[in-house]
């Protein structure tokens, strides 16, 4: 990042819309900051309910991220390293949650894992109730976050290419050894940034959760749901919690920023 690149200049007018864009993103944050009641800030973000919501958010997001890694890494490898009929269509479908409104995701999950859903009877027979449980929160978060990990890892896999893997195989390494000792280490930066994005997306997940999981303190009321509730009853606390979420998100983005690695 420290190397000076030689470049031709950009048109002067381009700074204006660029600046407007930056303002559009940053101004609302400033607006929120201006409403923070600093004297009560610490009290507001450390109430019992706030700590419960933050704790639940961090725990469910961590589990969701782990699930994203467990499921998303194989998905990315299959998409990047194999070819089969319908792969392009499958890739688009897998990425769908990225562009769907989360509430649509919530409805889809409801009709899949809900009592009356596709798998409802089977889950019921197993004694598993998904809706209104923390499992539902994790499912919703994983559903919306998975594509972020898959996209960023598939990109990393494609740009890493297969040449190292070919060499490794010719040295006698089985596909599993190649995957473990060559592929994964090579794309580790991509995996880390993908997992971080997935974590951030999980932390911010709201629509699918409230549609599918409901809202109950300690069980399903994550930080965004808690903020949504506070917004009505205690706007000061909502602002304080929002700021907390912004800080967490900024830390996470800083961690995942592309180009930080290498």
């Amino acid at each position: 990042m420290t190397t000076q690149q030689r470049q031709v200049g950009v048109p002067a007018w381009i700074y204006l819309p660029a600046l407007l864009g930056a303002v559009l993103v940053l101004l609302p944050l400033a607006g929120m900051l201006s409403r923070v009641d600093w004297s009560r800030f610490v009290d507001l973000v450390t109430t019992e309910s706030a700590r419960t919501a933050l704790g639940l958010s961090l725990r469910t997001s961590a589990v969701s991220t782990a699930l994203c890694v467990l499921l998303g890494v194989p998905m990315a490898v299959v998409l990047a390293r194999t070819s089969f009929p319908g792969q392009g269509v499958l890739r688009s479908l897998v990425l769908l949650p990225m562009v769907l409104p989360p509430v649509v995701g919530g409805i889809a999950l409801l009709y899949t894992f809900g009592r009356k859903g596709l798998l409802g009877a089977e889950l019921d027979a197993l004694g598993v109730q998904v809706a209104f449980s923390t499992i539902a929160v994790v499912l919703a978060q994983t559903f919306v976050s998975l594509p972020f990990l898959v996209v960023s890892l598939e990109g990393a896999l494609r740009s890493a290419g297969q040449r190292y893997e070919v060499v490794a195989a010719s040295l006698g390494a089985s596909p599993t050894t190649v995957f473990r000792r060559v592929t994964l280490p090579l794309v580790l930066p991509g995996l880390v940034s993908g997992a971080t994005l997935a974590f951030a997306r999980s932390l911010g997940e709201f629509g699918a959760t409230i549609t599918f999981a409901g809202s109950l303190e300690g069980t399903t009321r994550t930080l965004p749901l808690y903020i949504y509730q506070l917004r009505v009853t205690d706007p000061d606390a909502a602002v304080a919690m929002s700021l907390l979420l912004v800080v967490v998100a900024v830390v996470v983005i800083g961690f995942a920023r592309p180009g930080r690695t290498g």
Binding site: R163, V166, V167, A169, S170, L171, G172, S174, P175
Partner: peptide, 13 residues
Amino acid sequence: APHDRRVALLAQE
């Protein structure tokens, strides 16, 4: 499979 052939590759790079 490639890894079972005991055929090693050395490329340009």
